[in-house]
C-alpha cells in the first residue's frame, strides 16, 4: 500500500517540481517584466505543491536533488524546454488543464491527496486562466503570433497522450479525464482560431513512458543544472 501511494506522490510531485524549474528558467529572460513575475508566481505555486507531495514520498531534498534521471516519474510534457513564449504557453495550457481536472477530482474525494488538491486547485485554476488568456491573444493575434502558437501546439501535442495513462494509487476515471481535457483544450484552441492538432497516425511514434522513468534528452541537462549545487556542496544550508 505504501508503495502505491508513494508512486502517486512521486508522479504528481515530479510533475510539479520539473515544470516549476522550467518556468523558473524564464527569470531574467521573459519578454516583459510583468510576464516574468506571472511565470515566477506559477513556478512558486508548483514548487509549493511539489514540496508537499515529495515529502509524502520521502525526504524532499533527497528526492529532488539526489535522484538520477531514470528515477523521476514526471510526464515528458513538463520537461520539454521552454522554447519560445508560445511553446511555454502551449505547455502551460495542456498541463494546467490536466492538473485542474485531476486535482478537482482528487479534492472531491477523501483520499490522501484531497487536502493538498483542494488548496492547489485554486492555484491551478489561475494557471489555466493565464495560459488560456495568452493562447487566445497569440492565436488570434498577428500572423506571426498565430503561426508560432500553432507550431507550438502541434509540437507538444504528442506529449499529451501520456497524461491519461493510469497512475498507480490514484482512483481516477482516466478516459473520462481525457475527454474532459480534450473538450476544454479544444474549446480554447478554437476560440483562439487554432485548429486542434490530430493525433499521430496509427503506428507512428508517440511520446510517453515518463511515468516509468524514461525521459527525453533535454531533461538530463535540466537535472544537471537543477542538482549541481546540492551535489557539489552536500548538506550545505543558508
Amino acid at each position: 500500500m505504501t508503495v502505491t501511494v508513494d508512486a502517486a506522490a512521486l508522479a504528481l510531485g515530479d510533475d510539479a517540481l520539473v515544470l516549476s524549474h522550467r518556468l523558473g528558467e524564464w527569470a531574467g529572460h521573459a519578454p516583459v517584466l510583468e510576464e516574468e513575475v506571472a511565470l515566477a508566481n506559477i513556478a512558486l505555486d508548483l514548487l509549493g505543491q511539489a514540496r508537499v507531495l515529495l515529502s509524502m514520498a520521502g525526504d524532499e531534498d533527497e528526492l529532488a536533488y539526489l535522484r538520477e534521471e531514470r528515477a523521476f516519474r514526471n510526464l515528458q510534457l513538463v520537461e520539454q524546454p521552454n522554447g519560445d513564449f508560445a511553446h511555454t504557453i502551449a505547455r502551460q495550457l495542456y498541463f494546467s488543464t490536466y492538473q485542474r481536472l485531476l486535482y478537482a477530482h482528487l479534492a472531491s474525494g477523501d483520499g490522501r491527496f484531497a487536502g493538498l488538491a483542494a488548496k492547489a486547485v485554486k492555484e491551478v485554476a489561475y494557471h489555466q486562466d493565464h495560459a488560456e488568456q495568452w493562447t487566445l491573444r497569440l492565436g488570434d493575434g498577428t500572423d506571426i503570433s498565430h503561426e508560432r502558437m500553432r507550431t507550438a501546439c502541434r509540437a507538444l501535442w504528442r506529449y499529451t497522450g501520456e497524461m491519461f495513462e493510469p497512475v498507480e494509487g490514484l482512483d481516477v476515471d482516466w478516459e473520462g479525464l481525457r475527454s474532459a481535457w480534450l473538450e476544454s483544450v479544444s474549446a480554447v484552441l478554437l476560440r483562439a482560431t487554432l485548429d486542434v492538432p490530430e493525433g499521430p497516425p496509427s503506428g507512428a511514434w508517440s511520446a510517453g513512458a515518463g511515468r516509468q522513468g524514461v525521459h527525453t534528452e533535454p531533461f538530463g541537462l535540466m537535472l544537471a543544472e537543477m542538482q549541481h549545487l546540492h551535489r557539489s556542496h552536500p548538506g550545505a544550508s543558508w
Binding site: V32, E34, E35, V37, A38, N41, D129, H130, Q133, R137
Partner: peptide, 20 residues
C-alpha cells in the same frame, strides 16, 4: 502602475504584481 496589452491582462498582471 504596470504595462499590459489590454484591460484583462492588466488585471491579471496587477494580481501578480500587487496582491501576491
Amino acid at each position: 502602475s504596470l504595462h499590459a496589452p489590454d484591460a484583462e491582462l492588466a488585471l491579471r498582471n496587477a494580481r501578480d504584481l500587487y496582491t501576491r
